[in-house]
């Protein structure tokens, strides 16, 4: 099939950027969306296009590293639910379709080039407290603390977050609540996570806010686009733990 890709081109962080239309021919339905971009890029290189090949982030191409991700026709990661951009396949498109491709847009995720953004803010949220402080070697025997299945499952469901940033990209407020809540839930429901539970919550929520993300007004758009289907309930948990933590932690530095 032949498609038209309307792609955001931006030479660098300070460039104003704009859309450019490209025709891509010979796309087959078993190709992935990123392979379609590859195909387009091959022709942009050989034809000597003024903008050159389109920069886009990707690595594993199997939906787990979280490095890929663009807005496709106004939806983060495109039209397939629970699917990363790299796992979107062209069998969902028809000959002649025009597809609009934009980078994530968020003040906390500045555009680096074309479709590539800087998601360093996510790492800094983890650095603020998204861990259990256990130095290597100091761990007790693993089966000493049983973790009931419901907690183990809840923790795992939340831990599946791949840090792609689609939640932020899709949120009308540009909020990073789902990402932060996923990490908090992962650790806060486990017995191992209890000692630092409330401090972690305060630290991560405040780090999140300091990064310039918006604030959540419960649009639930994040949950709908999340490729790992992180449940919205994690945000309720974040709020609950934050309220509790604030009530409990006295104002001290």
């Amino acid at each position: 099939m032949n498609l038209t890709l309307r792609v955001w081109r931006q030479a660098g962080p300070d460039d104003s950027g704009g859309f450019v239309d490209y025709r891509v021919e010979g796309v087959t339905e078993d190709m992935s969306f990123l392979e379609t971009l590859d195909l387009l890029n091959e022709s942009l290189i050989t034809s000597g296009d003024a903008h050159g090949p389109i920069a886009f982030d990707h690595d594993c191409r199997e939906g787990i590293c979280g490095q890929c991700g663009v807005m496709i026709d106004g939806v983060a990661h495109g039209p397939q639910p629970a699917t990363t951009t790299c796992q979107l396949h062209m069998r969902h498109y028809r000959d002649g379709d025009v597809i609009l491709v934009e980078p994530w847009r968020s003040a906390a995720f500045p555009v680096v080039r074309d479709l590539v953004v800087d998601r360093g803010a996510f790492d800094r949220i983890i650095a603020s407290g998204g861990y259990i402080s256990v130095a290597t070697g100091s761990a007790p025997e693993a089966n000493l603390t049983p973790v009931p299945r419901p907690q183990a499952d809840e923790s795992f469901t939340a831990a599946a977050c791949i840090g792609c940033g689609a939640c932020v990209a899709a949120c009308p407020n540009g909020a990073a609540q789902l990402y932060t809540a996923a990490k908090l839930t992962h650790l806060n429901v486990l017995p191992q996570g209890q000692p630092e539970r409330y401090e972690r919550t305060i630290a991560m929520v405040e780090a999140m806010e300091a990064e310039g993300f918006g604030n959540c007004t419960n649009h639930a758009e994040c949950e709908a686009v999340c490729p790992k289907e992180i449940p919205l309930g994690t945000i309720a948990k974040l709020n609950r733990d934050y309220i509790r933590a604030s009530l409990r932690a006295p104002a001290k530095t």
Binding site: Y131, I132, V134, P140, A142, A159, H186, L187
Partner: peptide, 9 residues
């Protein structure tokens, strides 16, 4: 042991 202590589910 280490992984479980870190919260690996």
């Amino acid at each position: 042991d280490q992984a479980v202590a870190q919260g690996v589910p």
